[in-house]
Amino acid sequence: MGSPHAVGIVGLGVISTQYLDLFAQSPAIRIAAVADLRPDRTAEVAAGIPGARALTVDEMMADPEVQTVLNLTVPAAHAEVAHAAIAAGKSVHGEKPLALTVAEGRAVMDAAAAAGVHVSAAPDTVLGTGIQTARRLVDDGAIGRPVAASATWVSPGHELWHPAPGFYYAPGGGPLFDMGPYYLTSLVHLLGPVVAVTGAARRARAERTIATGPHAGERIEVEVDTHVSGLLEHAGGAVSTVVTSFDAVRTAAPPIEVHGERGSLSVPDPNMFDGEVRLAALGEDGWRSVPASAGYEGSGRGIGLIDAIASGGAGRAGGALALHVLDVMESLLRSSAEGRRLEVGTTVERPTLVPLTAAVDWTRIAG
């Protein structure tokens, strides 16, 4: 086992605690430094991590000890922080989306290639046992040739619970950019890249009212579409339908279903790392649960960075996949605006299956 990989975290909001919880389990990662726009928050988090230093963003980028920058900023800052890290010769693992636009995302990937560093990105939930077990069943022919899939996520809106939900309704937010990456990344793992899309998107309200926290009662402007439906054509011939919404109360639809000529799969929530996979095979009566047979067991947010360290590159949650998903999302919105089917300009190799890996094994990985 080699030396721990030195990581600097930029952005210490709510999601950062989940990453820190995972990294605390593994000697693969050493948090060398943290930075946030709030110096008090930076100092507080650093004090709770042995050996971590509270730095400014500029200080972190100049620090030769930091090998990879974990970018947990708001979506509008993802590309800017990534470029700063790459310019400093550091690899980047970022929250989703990769950037606000495909053009920005391409620029990040081109800069990384020129600098000889790696880019990986959330969501890495797809590397858990839920999506990976479903992937293994598809690969093993349990449902025959895949022909269709559906993915559904709906909510009445984050302003009902989030104390500062404004960024969910700004560019880079909305249900598609917020939750779509989990579902679209899963569909690429299950069925391969997307070659064309047809989208329909709407904005139900021009304003939202914050319901909780210190800003309760304040109104926020809605700058993005809040209900997006899409038809995805995969390179292998399967067709997927996707619905993401901030305009619906709830749904009884399964998160993801995949249908083949000889069976169907019910796939668990891709915002989680595990969950029950169910198979309905042709000729059988009803659904049956399938034990976990692939994926990182007991994992959490940040496993994609550990996977990248193990691979010596970008890993299964690589930037190329994040760029393709970003392209699919942007194409869906543009298809809706233009009222026509659009071909997707990027493609990506379907990531390799994650073998069933116990926590005791993935926590031993170090770089």
Rank of each mutant, 00 (worst) to 15 (best):
I9T: 08
V14P: 09
I15S: 09
T17L: 11
F23V: 13
F23K: 12
A24K: 07
S26G: 06
P27W: 13
A35E: 09
R38E: 01
R38G: 01
R38K: 07
D40L: 11
R41A: 10
E44H: 03
V45A: 03
A47T: 01
A47Q: 10
G48K: 03
G51I: 12
A52E: 05
R53S: 05
R53N: 03
A54S: 12
L55M: 14
V57C: 05
Q67F: 02
T73Y: 03
E80T: 10
A85I: 11
I86F: 04
K90C: 08
K90M: 10
S91R: 00
H93I: 01
G94P: 01
A99V: 04
T101G: 10
A103L: 09
R106C: 04
M109H: 05
A111C: 04
A121I: 12
A121V: 07
T125S: 15
L127Q: 10
L127D: 06
G128M: 15
G128R: 11
T129W: 04
Q132A: 02
T133Y: 06
R136H: 14
V138I: 04
D139I: 09
D139G: 06
D139R: 12
D139A: 06
G141Q: 11
R145W: 00
A148M: 06
W153E: 15
S155F: 12
P156E: 07
W161E: 14
W161A: 15
H162K: 07
P165M: 01
F167M: 02
Y168E: 06
Y168V: 00
Y169W: 13
G173P: 05
G173Y: 04
L176V: 06
F177Q: 01
G180P: 10
P181K: 03
Y182W: 15
L184P: 08
L184W: 00
L190M: 08
V194S: 02
R202I: 04
R202H: 10
A206I: 00
E207P: 02
I210R: 08
P214I: 08
A216H: 12
L231W: 11
L232G: 05
G236Q: 11
G236H: 01
G237Q: 12
V243F: 12
T244L: 09
T244F: 11
F246N: 04
D247I: 14
A248K: 12
A248F: 15
A248V: 13
V249N: 03
V249S: 13
R250H: 15
A252P: 04
A252F: 08
A252W: 02
P255D: 09
G263R: 00
L265E: 14
S266I: 07
V267E: 12
D269E: 10
D269V: 03
P270V: 13
D274G: 10
D274F: 08
E276K: 01
R278K: 05
A280S: 08
L282M: 07
L282A: 12
E284V: 02
W287I: 01
R288N: 04
S293H: 03
G295N: 14
Y296G: 11
E297T: 14
G298A: 14
G298N: 07
I303E: 01
I303D: 02
G304I: 13
A308H: 13
A308W: 15
A310Q: 14
A314P: 05
R316T: 11
A322M: 10
V325F: 00
V325W: 04
V325R: 02
A337Y: 02
G339C: 05
V344I: 00
V344K: 04
V344A: 14
V348W: 09
P351N: 07
V354H: 05
A358P: 01
A359P: 02
D361I: 00
T363H: 10
R364G: 14
